[in-house]
Structures are given as C-alpha cells and as structure tokens.
Write a protein that binds this DNA or RNA. Sequence first.
DNA 1: GATGGCATGTAATAAGTTACATGATTCA
DNA 2: TGAATCATGTAACTTATTACATGCCATC
Lengths: 172, 172
Amino acid sequence: MKGRDVVLGLLNTKSRSGYEIKEIVEDQLAYFFDASIGMIYPTLRNLEKEGKIQKTRVYQTDKPNKNVYTITDSGKKEFAQYLKSPIAQDIYKSDCLMRLYLGTELSDKEITHLIQQELKHKQELLQHLQDSYQDWQSKGMNKRQKITLDYGIATYKAAINALESAKQDLQP
Amino acid sequence: MKGRDVVLGLLNTKSRSGYEIKEIVEDQLAYFFDASIGMIYPTLRNLEKEGKIQKTRVYQTDKPNKNVYTITDSGKKEFAQYLKSPIAQDIYKSDCLMRLYLGTELSDKEITHLIQQELKHKQELLQHLQDSYQDWQSKGMNKRQKITLDYGIATYKAAINALESAKQDLQP
DNA sequence: GATGGCATGTAATAAGTTACATGATTCA
DNA sequence: TGAATCATGTAACTTATTACATGCCATC
C-alpha cells in the first residue's frame, strides 16, 4: 500500500479535490495510514501526468477555486490491480518502545516520564477516535469502515492498558 | 527514530557485527521497528564514514570472518542526543484496514477472506512473540525490554479479537 | 555435492518528508 | 485588520527499499 493507492482509491469512489483528500486522510485514515499530508499534491500531479486521473478546474464564489480530480479507466485499472495484489504486512514503528529497549542509560524516573507521555498521547488519540464515531456516521459510514474504527479503538485501549500496568510495575 | 538511531543504540550497549545486528532487529525489534534488513549494512557504512563507529576485522576459523563495529565518543554523543529529543509519534500503516475502507467494490466474500488472512497472520505473529518470552529471558531480558514484549502481546491480542468479531458480524 | 546458516556488501531506484512559497475568502 | 479556513503547488533533500552480487564453513 503506497500513497498513490490511497489517493487512487479515494478518487475511485468519487471525484475530489486535493484539499478534500487531505481532510479524509487526516480525519478518517490517520489511524491506519500515517503519511505526511505533503504527499498528496505531488501524488496527484504524478497520477495526472501518468493519465490515471484528470483535473478539472472548479470555480467557486464563496471559497477559493479548486481543482477536482476524476479517475480515468487507466486509473481504475491500476486500483483494481492493487486490490488483487497480496496484502502487505503492517508497518509499525514505535519510538517509545524503541527507547524502552535501547535506553539502558535512562533512569527509572526518565522511563516513567517517557511512559507517562506516551500514555497521555495515546489517550488523546483514543478520545479522538471515539469522538469520530458520530461524525463518521453522519457522513455515511459503511459496515467495513466501522470495522476499521472498532479495530483502532480496540488496539488503542490495549496499548493504554499495557502502558498503565508498565507504569505501575516501575513504581517502587 | 531512524534506522541509524537503532543501529547506534544497539552498538551503544556492546560492539557487534552487522549480522548480529540483523539478528536482533529480526528477532527482538521486529514488532515495533519495521525496517528492511537491507538497511543495516548501508547504515553501518555511513556511520563509519562519519566517524560514529569503528570497524574491526575479526578472524574466525569455524565461521566466515566478520566485521565488528564499536561506537566512538562522537557516536555516543549522537545517540545521547536522540534519547533527549522529543518522542516521535508512532507510525502505523495497515494495508488490510485500508482495503476494508477503500474496497467498496469487493464482495462480502472477498472481505471475509481478507479478514481471515489477516487473522491468520496476526495469530502467527502473536505465537512468535509468545515463543520469544523464554528465548529472551535466557539471553537476559531487563524490565524495560519486558514491557515492550508485554505491550506487543497485548496489542496483537486486541487486534485478533477485533478481527474475530468483525468476521462474525459479516457472517449472514 | 547440496543445503542451510553465517557473513558482507553496492548500485539504482522509489518513496516520503521538509521547507519553501503563495493566495483567496469569511468572519469576528 | 487579523485570524481561521480553504486552497494549491514545487524543489531539494533524506531515507528506505529492491535487486543484484558474492563467498565461507559445517553438516548431512
């Protein structure tokens, strides 16, 4: 799964502008697709150059004008091929766990602080996902999208529990 | 957290060869550090060129000879700086969840198959982590490293549960 | 003599990230 | 008039990945 597959997949459902793609990636895909937003416009540009999508200028009076991209047959073909390809394994990188593993020089106090910080961050992310529930539903969430949300909430909760018991184990 | 921080951190504890680093990354860090093994030798080369580590040739009779790398003061300084830097947020990318989200064209049967595959894969990963427990302990696992293992097991279990209930919800 | 584990590397390519750069419109 | 939101893009750089490439040693 690459950035271009995601952009193509979002345009496969309906035509959208770069900004609209950015909003979806930030609000709805962020949990299972960590990509910098900066990737979107370069990707759109490449896809257009390759004839996978087509740009249309849309003039707006209440907002700045925008470019709306529509997927082409060639683009649909590429996306269908992605869906047929073998599932790529998850990519997970945790700086916090790495520091726990490598930070033999850190004091117990520093480690506790590290865990506390991570805990706070994960709690915020969980809260955000839980808040999304209603928001998604109003925008029309299908069964499959609900699975992704439930999955995210479940794993955040597990991570929070693990960090909490780690914190307690470190307490003297 | 970049590849070089990890290599530097592993050499900060003790001198090792590229192959030894590869084994640790595969066996012990794989859960929270998805990086291709191909990155190790290029990274060692760069770090040596920058004077962060030093190479020593070790001659072996029972095995092929190897290059053992030792961290320098400059390298220790860089690693200490990494430990002081702000924690980077987790990176997570799930091809399976992305397909659930984007695969509006897939049939329920195809979706169930997708989940089944992911389930099987996660169960294998969990089994592998659980098997690691004894192995790690014999090699000297410290309290902090144990946290990373427990965390990994907890989140895999949560993921498996989420996939199992998703599978049941899709059943007619 | 074949297989599997130990051992190391390079060149080329792809992908992702950061920093830079701009500008319209709305609302307080 | 200043902040927030909507809106788009490029150039340069860093990083990661892939494919290629080699060869020793032990054991079966």
